[in-house]
Design a binder for these strands. Structure first.
Length: 298
DNA sequence: AATCTATCCAACCGCTTTTAA
DNA sequence: GTTAAAAGCGGTTGGATAGAT
């Protein structure tokens, strides 16, 4: 027989919370704090299990919750952090003030995942959805720089479970794909892929290219509103494209020329679309052809 | 207007980790 | 060192709602 939850065992209320229950829980915590969660329902006069109370408080009642739709910056940050941490929702949420792990997880599953797939990126690996063989054909041995794990952009095992906390509590106004990045010394090594405009590991790449500055300057997208989806594409491919001598077409676009702020959003959207279509139609093929040119004849 | 379908999100479930006795 | 309880976490489910037919 399947194990029953604590709520089942004690025949406690389940399902959605009523405003009255919320009020009871709020009042109790406001007066006494939560203390031991298992004792909260009894003390607060609720027919819920402590676990349920805790969840309700954390995900819904906490006064410091932000709620509402996620901003572009938050979205960027989530994607970025997911590429580093994987499905560590609590750790990702810890970098987003006022957001809960549940909220971030839901946002990822219902929105970002879909967006990434639409863009041809595997949300699980942050790699293009292209066939591995085709990918290798295009990117050649540069692909070897990418760890063959499920999460290629993932940081190395973290000694501190949450080093990001101490090192880079990233401000939400930080321009993820914008202008100057924070000093590299303040950032996790593995973050360079996004923060510096997109390399998996500049050192490794440099070595791969023979060192001595053979690596082109990192590509720093100029569009202020460009999403991390774009950054990811850059992070995923810019090295490949650069190494292969291809220039990403959108880099020449000048969003600053769009003076009317009211059109920024639609412009950004259009720009995003343009980048992706041009990227796959242009730079991708350019890289492919370049790669082909590098292959021994025959 | 009725029905179907897709989407979103709050809440639950069960497992793991941490803490206290 | 062992054990049980509590807390934390990530995956999943189910209900509400919006949009399409």
């Amino acid at each position: 027989m399947a194990k029953q939850s604590c709520c089942h065992k004690k025949k406690l209320r389940r399902g959605l919370w009523s405003p009255e229950e919320d009020e009871k829980l709020m009042n109790h915590i406001a007066k006494y704090g939560h203390g031991c969660w298992s004792s909260v329902p009894k003390l607060a006069g609720l027919e819920r299990c402590g676990k349920s109370c805790r969840l309700r408080w954390i995900n819904y009642l906490r006064p410091d919750l932000k709620r509402g739709t996620f901003s572009q910056q938050e979205e960027d940050l989530i994607i970025h952090l997911h590429s580093l941490l994987g499905n560590k929702w609590s750790q990702i949420a810890a970098q987003l003030p006022g957001r809960t792990d549940n909220e971030v997880k839901n946002f990822w599953n219902s929105y970002i995942k879909k967006r990434l797939r639409e863009r041809g990126i595997d949300p699980a690996t942050h790699h293009p959805l292209a066939e591995p063989a085709a990918c290798r054909a295009v990117f050649g041995d540069v692909v070897d720089l990418i760890p063959a794990t499920a999460a290629p952009l993932q940081a190395p095992p973290l000694a501190d479970p949450m080093p990001l906390d101490g090192v880079t509590k990233l401000p939400l106004d930080w321009p993820v794909a914008g202008a100057a990045a924070p000093p590299p010394s303040t950032l996790p090594r593995s973050s360079s892929c996004y923060l510096q405009g997109g390399c998996f590991d500049m050192d490794a790449l440099q070595q791969h290219c023979g060192g001595g500055g053979a690596v082109p300057a990192p590509v720093v997208p100029s569009a202020s509103s460009s999403s991390t989806l774009t950054s990811m594409a850059e992070a995923e491919h810019c090295n490949n494209a650069n190494v292969a001598g291809a220039t990403l077409p959108w880099l020449e676009l000048e969003p600053n020329a769009v003076a009317d702020a009211g059109h920024i959003d639609s412009y950004a959207g259009a720009l995003d679309e343009l980048r992706w279509s041009e990227y796959f139609d242009g730079a991708f093929q350019a890289a492919a052809s370049q790669q082909g040119a590098l292959q021994p004849a025959g």
